[in-house]
Structure formats: C-alpha cells, structure tokens
Write a protein that binds this DNA or RNA. Structure first.
Length: 846
RNA sequence: GCGGGUGUGGCGGAAUGGUAGACGCGAGGGUCUCAAACACCCUUACCGCAAGGUGUGUCGGUUCGAGUCCGACCACCCGCACCA
C-alpha cells in the first residue's frame, strides 16, 4: 500500500497536461467555444489566498467546460503598470521594469503549482511594448473617432504621488493609494468621452441578465440619470440671472431661498471682493468630506445680500445664500431650497430663521411641517396646498411632470435630463504607464504620432531620486520630430491611467501576438467573455470603463457589434478572511502576529496569550495572512483548492482556518486510500448493494453538475463528501465500486485535478481525466422505487410511511390515515382535510 | 441621510412553500496502542430521566403547511456623491 503524496503527483500531472498541450486554445469552428476569465492580477510579487480562490473558481468552470465538449479559452496576464513599481524604485533604487518583470516571474512560479488550466502561451503583461503599443494605436483611433479630447480642467492633484487622480480615485478627499490630502490644480488633460455614452451605458445594463443585480445597481447609481427642470432666477440688482437645476420643481411654491455652492462663480466673485465672505467661504470648505464628517457637520450659510424674483410671482423676493451643502459639480451649482420637503433645507432654514412653506400635505394626516420634512415617495399621492398648475391630489412624479410641462409652455424653464457620470480623465504625470502617443509642435499644435512609429517606448534610462515624472526631465526622450511638419517638437510626457490597460486586455487575449490591437476573426470567434470572475471592488470603475472601451473598440473597428457588452456573465466572489492575533506592546499599542506563529491561542515562541479578533479580510498590516505557497508545500494545491471552495458560498467571504485546511487534506487522503483499496479488489469480486451504490452515484452526478453550473461549489463539495462516505461504507462488488470511484474522480476533477488524474490512472482510465467526457446522470437511476413520506398532523410531523414511488394519492391517504399517530389524533372523528403531495408529504388536518 | 445585502446549532453553512440543521469544523464517547499520534466507529439544535415540548433576529399576516411569501420593526455588514 502506497501513500498520498500531493507534491509528487501534482508535479507529475502538471507535466503531463503540459506535454499533451490540452489547455492551448485554438479556433475550432466545429466546437462551441467558451471563454472564462478571471480578473488579471497586479504583479505584487506574491500570490495570496484571494488569488487562489479567484483562479480556482475560474478553473473549475474552465475544466468543467472542457469536459462538456467546449473549446475553452482560459488565459492569464498581468496588470503590470502602476505606481507600486515606481514606489519600489524610489524606495530601493531599482528600475520599475526590473522590479515588475521579476515580480511577474515570481508570481508565475507561485501560480503554476496550483495546476490551473491556463493557456500560458497567451500570457502578456500590460507593460510589454507589444501590448501598450497596440493600446497607443487604439488611442489614436479613438482620437480620430472623436472619443478623446483635451481640455483644461481642475484636477485632483496628489501632492505625495505627484500625480492627477480621477474623481473616482479620490476617497474622502484623499488619494486612494497615497492617502494624501488632495489639492485642486488646473492642468490641460486628456479625457475619454465616456459621458457621451451615459444613456447607452445605463440602458444596456438591462441586458446584463447574468450580472449580479447589485453591480448593475451600483453602475446605475454611478451614472446617475435624473430628470428635472432648469430655469433662472432674475436678480433684483440686474446682475446675471442665477440658473438652478431641480428634480423637484413641483415644490417651487415652497421656495424659501436660493442657495449657491461656495465654488459658484458668484460666490467666488464675492470671495475676491469681500474679506468677510472669503473668511466664511473658507470655513465652509474646511472640514472632512468623510461620511461621518458630513453627517455631523453643521449646516453653514452666508446671506449674500443678493435678492432674486420668484419666477411665478414678480413681487416675491428670495434671498441668495451661500450654503456649504451645495456642490458645484452637480447640476448648476445652485438650487432653490424647499425646506418643507427636504430635511437638509429644513435644518438650514430653522438655523437661519428662514420661512418654511408647505406645498403639499399627507392625505391622512394633513399637518404642517415642524422639524421633520415631509418627504413621501414620488409614487405616493398627496394633497397640494397651492399648486400653480392646478393640481389637487396627485403623486410627486405627476406633479414634477406637470410642472415641467407648465414651465416649458410658459417659457421660463425647460425639462433637462442630467447624468452624474463625468468624462474620464486619463492623463497621469507618471513614468510607469503607457505613454500617450502625441507630439506637441510649436507650429502644428497637438499632433498624433504616426502609427508606424508605435510603440512610443518608455526610455529605460531614468532615475527616481526626485519626485515627479522622470519623463519630464529626461534629457533626450522628449525631443522628436513633428509627425506633421518634421520640425523639432516635444513628446507628451503624460502616461495613461492604468485603468486604460485593463479596459481591453480581455479582447487582446483573443489574439495576443497580433500586430493590430485585435484580429476580427479571433474576436468574432472568442468574444464575448462567457464568464468573468473577480472582486466586487471593481463593480464600478473597471467594469464601466471596460464597457465603454468595448463600445469604442467597436466604433473604431476592433471588436464586433456583439461585443459592445464584453462580459456575458459576471460573478463577484467573496474574500478570504482570517482571525487576527494581537498582543500589545509596553505602550498598549497593538502588535499583530502571523497565524503560523500562533498555536492554541498562544505565541509559539514565548507562550504569551494572544487576543483573537474576529475574521477580517487578509491583509499584510494585520498579519492575518496565510501564504498559499506554504499551504501548497504542506498539503498540496488540491487541498488549498478544495478548501477555498468548500466552506462558504463563492459570493460570500470564506474564513481560512487551519483546522479546515487540515480536514480538507484528510479527506483527499481518504479518497486516495479508497481508490487504493478498490484497486486492490479482485476484479470479479461480487458484493451486496451494487444498485444502491450506482443510484447514489447518479444522484451525485446530478447534484455536482448542478452545483458547478450554478456556482454552488460548496454545495457540490458537500455532495462529494456524502458520496465518498457512501462509497467508503459500500459492500458492493468490484465492478460497481470501480465505476463509482472513477466517477467520483471525474466529478472531483475540476476542483482537485491532480488527485482525480491519479485515481483515474490508478483505476485504468483511458487518457487524461481532464479531457474525459463529463459523466451523465441516468434519469432512470435517479428515481427510487420506494419513498419515505412524512405524515403531518396540522402541519407538525408526527409519523412517516414508506410507499412505492408510483402509489396513487387515494392509497397513500388510506395508509396515512391508518397510522397510529393519525388514529390517535383523530380519536374516531373524520379528518377535516387531507393533503397528499405525491413523493413529498401528507398533511392531515383534524 | 440614501441605496443594497445579511440574520438558521458552539462555528462555517444546507434546505423547488412540504421531515429545519445536509456537508464540514469543533466537542463528547469508543475501537486500535504499553501510551500517544494516525486511522476507524458512534453521538452531537435546545429544554427534559422520559413522555413530550421549544426552536431559523422580533412582532404580526397569508397558507393544510412558512427559514422560504407579505407587512412592520430590530441588529449587523457593504456601497455612496449631503446629488437638489
């Protein structure tokens, strides 16, 4: 008898797959294709358990699809541009390129032992000139198509990273990577016209049926479509009218004041002229922009002294206030406040003693607003106090529509649809990114580089001893000839946001070595991604940008029309979490400890007890990390794969526990021993219960297949556990047991491919289990001859009977009524009602 | 504040409106062993000696029957842009 040695068999089978080339994808018109993709990693240098979980899920799908006859594309690459490489270069003096490629080599070496069914021949990194050169070509095509433009813009400047951040990359007023307070600066920037597709990107969300509803909703909110009324208030001093946008124009008769943002041109003008305003506005701008700060921040306002006329009553004058809760970059940066129906406005008016006017009342409880604004859902009917368009009882939505029509007819306002989505600023003042392929010429202006000169390569001879962009201070790289007039000119030194790199890599995988961004035949064949898998953290940015890019690539002829939505199905997996072990230093500050240094709640080294903090996402700072490499060397890849799939539903977080990992390993050992035992049986040995075993086997095929198809990996694994237990206890003959163990190996092969392969070979299976056709459940074997029916009395289970599966309702009822429990409950009386659900249950109502 | 999600044993979690707690962990008991480890077997929602009763966050409702459907509420988690 031999022993299960994961290290030995895993290396052997990986070599066998490699040799057979079974994961190499090529176009085959006669087979259905399947493209499965996991979000590609940033090459940090170390894989973590989150990667293992992400790639294992994709691998299960990929291997299952291979077994069901699909031509599978399952590629892998590296999201390799970005600031950590520059940070590392600044910290330790190396070159971002060397750092990145070394990390890629390290990570690839850590990933390969996982035994993933990846077509490594398609691998690329976004920092390969062959990739970013094609990205530059795409950029030029998009420029041609009017999808890229330059404008002066106030940008978020990160003073630590010395770079511009997209609005979306600013978190609570701080840079999302550096955490530094963001400053506002004006620069000329390149923008993608993503806002030109707002409506399209919004309405197409409805077609993404196989995306999580949550992600679609997040994108919907991000695009932020609203319908409202735009109109102007005339100033009594004859100054330029103040234009406001409102989604509740129906409350105009409840207007209390006009509010403008501290960044509104009028506020800025007053700020420049009047020191008192300047001081007040400065106070409004300070204070955190965090949720908490905003929640607790007091409403602040300043009466400008400006007065405006109400559009419906020239004698009605409203004051104009600067208010800290009005944002300049939404709508027009000016509003009218209706305190009766907006809590913010109400708080403000109570503070500054401004009037509160009810415009509509609750039908059931028509009392005036006191200190809580009356804000019913827009679908709720309310009674109007004084509606200029003559409404009496109507919903808010009806009133909004009526008001817009009224204003348009009267000519003092217009209905406007606005989107919150803003254009995507892509310029970054960084070295380690894709150079923007344009040239600045004194005579010709901004000139696109010629395609034959692509890629515009990053120079290698750069240093990072000073902050800022080394391309700016490079002695020769900037100098070039103008592509248009040939005179000396300067290259653009900005590089692209790394979100550009990840916005089309999925398309590049279909033709990774092509001399054009894509090849239409390959894109036609392989696109779309049938199943995309990744973290929820990319719900908005990456996925929205990719949707935009896919459309842009269609417009520029790089993708077929069907790829406008590039990801047919999306799955967002949960995180891997772990308990946190903490002690405190002499100053009471927390000190964290790696799980491998802790045993039974004590530090291995000193015996000091640790405080155990409930599980959280694995993070280096909390040291609650488990290194996949050490798990693989201790237990093997199959154990790690099995465990990350087994304990929780894939969309939820899974808690890594040492006990769980050991249990997974024990189980795989048990399966291996089982195969060993069955292999040693006399081939013609007969036994008891062949049919029972095979029936269970077919049920297991059905359940595991359903589980894999529906991302119920944990449920599929539970069924595999149960069937293994059944097989271990079976006394069936050798032939049945052999069939059972081989089927078990096949069903396990997407999750634990190496072990499955070894068992398959041990049992004399033909070829590789990786390419063996997926087993089919025989419907006839799924139906049991007899079924146990629970008997309920008034909905409570009291007894059970065993009946043939095809027994008629009347007969079942007779048997049920004859049971002791029912007889006792009836006590001679007739039942009020008997419900018989065939094959399920009998309920007797007494 | 707005939007979304989740609440089931000691723990992770199963359950097309039909036997709540599959499967795993942990725990307890046993076999083997000089002993331990490994392995294997049994038990394990709670209360109760038992009969029996109670149980899926809380309260109500629909139903022959509710973890599942409906209403209100509570708690926790996630996202967000005070979005007019």
């Amino acid at each position: 008898m031999s022993r299960y040695s994961a290290t030995e068999i895993e290396a052997r089978w990986q070599e066998a797959w490699d040799k057979a080339g079974i994961f190499r994808a090529s176009r085959q018109a006669d087979r259905p294709k399947y493209y499965v993709l996991e979000m590609f990693p940033y090459p940090s240098g170390r894989i973590h358990m989150g990667h293992v979980r992400n790639y294992t899920m994709g691998d299960v799908i990929a291997r299952y699809k291979i077994a069901t006859g699909h031509n599978v594309l399952h590629p892998m690459g590296w999201d390799a541009f970005g600031m950590p490489a520059e940070n590392a270069a600044m910290a330790s003096g190396g070159h971002p390129k060397d750092w990145t490629y070394q990390n890629i080599a390290d990570m690839r070496a850590q990933m390969k032992p996982l035994g993933l069914s990846i077509d490594w021949s398609r691998e690329f990194a976004t920092c390969d000139p062959e990739y970013y050169g094609q990205q530059q070509a795409l950029f030029l095509d998009m420029l041609d198509a009017g999808l890229v433009y330059r404008k002066n813009a106030v940008v978020n400047w990160d003073p630590v990273d010395m770079t511009v951040l997209a609005n979306e990359q600013v978190e609570n007023g701080r840079g999302w990577r550096s955490g530094a307070l963001v400053e506002r600066r004006e620069l000329t920037q390149w923008f993608f016209k993503i806002s030109s597709m707002s409506e399209e990107l919004l309405s197409a969300l409805d077609t993404l049926e196989n995306w999580p509803a949550k992600v679609r909703l997040m994108q919907e909110n991000w695009i932020g479509k609203s319908r409202g009324l735009q109109f102007s208030f005339e100033r009594t001093d004859g100054g330029a009218p103040i234009t406001v946008y409102t989604t509740r124009p129906d409350t105009l008769m409840g207007a209390s004041f006009v509010g403008i943002s501290p960044d509104h041109p009028i506020a800025k003008q007053l700020e420049a002229e009047n020191p008192e305003v300047a001081a007040e506005v400065a106070r409004m701008r300070e204070g955190g922009t965090t949720e908490e700060a905003i929640e607790t921040a007091e409403k602040r306002g300043y009466d400008t002294g400006i007065r405006v006329r109400h559009p419906l009553d020239p004698n009605w004058e409203l004051p104009v206030w600067i208010a800290n809760f009005i944002l300049m970059d939404y709508g027009t940066g000016a509003i009218f406040a209706c305190p009766a129906h907006d809590q913010r406005d109400l708080d403000f008016c109570r503070k500054y003693d401004l009037p509160v006017i009810d415009t509509f009342l609750d039908l059931d409880d028509p009392k005036p607003v006191a200190n809580t604004a009356f804000v019913p859902p827009k679908e709720q009917k309310v009674r109007w106090v004084n509606h200029f368009a003559g409404l009496d009882v109507a919903t808010g939505q009806e009133a909004v529509d009526a008001t817009i029509r009224f204003a348009e007819t009267a000519g003092w306002g217009e209905g406007v649809t606005k989107y919150r989505l803003r254009d995507w600023g892509l310029s970054r003042q960084r070295y380690w990114g894709c150079p923007i392929p344009v040239v600045h010429c004194d005579s010709c202006g901004v000139v696109p580089e010629k395609k034959e000169n692509l890629p515009v390569r990053l120079p290698d001879d750069v240093s990072f001893d000073r902050p800022g962009n080394p391309l700016d201070r490079h002695p020769t790289w900037r100098d070039c000839a103008c592509p248009s007039c040939g005179k000396p000119a300067k290259r653009e030194t900005d590089t692209m946001d790394t979100f550009v790199d990840s916005s089309w890599y999925f398309a590049r995988f279909t033709a990774p070595r092509a001399e054009t961004p894509t090849v239409m035949e390959d894109a036609e064949y392989w696109m779309n991604v049938d199943q995309y898998i990744g973290g929820i953290e990319h719900a908005i940015l990456h996925l929205l940008y990719s949707r935009f890019f896919a459309r842009a690539m269609h417009i520029t002829g790089h993708l077929p029309a069907k790829s406008k939505e590039p990801f047919d199905a999306l799955f967002t997996q949960g995180m891997v979490t772990h308990e946190i072990y903490q002690t405190r230093d002499e100053n009471g500050r927390p000190v964290y400890h790696l799980p491998e240094d802790v045993e039974n709640g004590k530090l291995k080294a000193t015996g000091e007890p640790v405080e155990i903090i409930p599980s959280a996402k694995m993070s280096k700072s909390k040291k609650n990390v488990v290194d996949p490499v050490s798990i693989i060397s201790a237990f093997g890849a199959d154990t790690a794969r099995w465990f990350v799939l087994s304990d929780s539903p894939p969309e939820r977080d899974v808690e890594w526990t040492a006990a769980g990992a050991e249990a997974a390993h024990k189980h795989l050992n048990r399966v291996w021993n089982l195969s060993d035992r069955i292999g040693a049986m006399q081939p013609d040995a007969s036994g008891e219960g062949d049919e029972d075993l095979l029936r269970e086997m077919h049920k297991c095929i059905r359940d595991v297949t359903n589980g894999v198809e529906s991302f119920g990996f944990n449920a599929a694994i539970a069924k595999l556990y149960a069937f293994t237990n059944t097989l271990a206890k079976s006394t069936a003959g050798a032939a049945a047991q052999k069939q059972a163990i081989m089927t078990l190996a096949q069903l396990m092969s997407p999750m634990t491919p190496h072990l499955a392969e070894d068992i398959w070979a041990h049992q004399g299976g033909e070829g590789l289990v990786a390419t063996a056709p997926w087993p089919k459940a025989d419907p006839a074997m799924l139906v049991d001859a007899a079924v146990i029916l629970p008997i309920q009395i008034n909905g409570k289970r009291r007894a059970e009977i065993s009946v043939p599966v095809d027994m008629g309702k009347a007969e079942v009822e007779k048997l049920a009524l004859a049971t002791d429990a029912v007889q006792k409950a009836l006590n001679g009386a007739a039942p009020k009602k008997v419900i018989v659900v065939p094959g399920r249950i009998v309920n007797v109502v007494v």
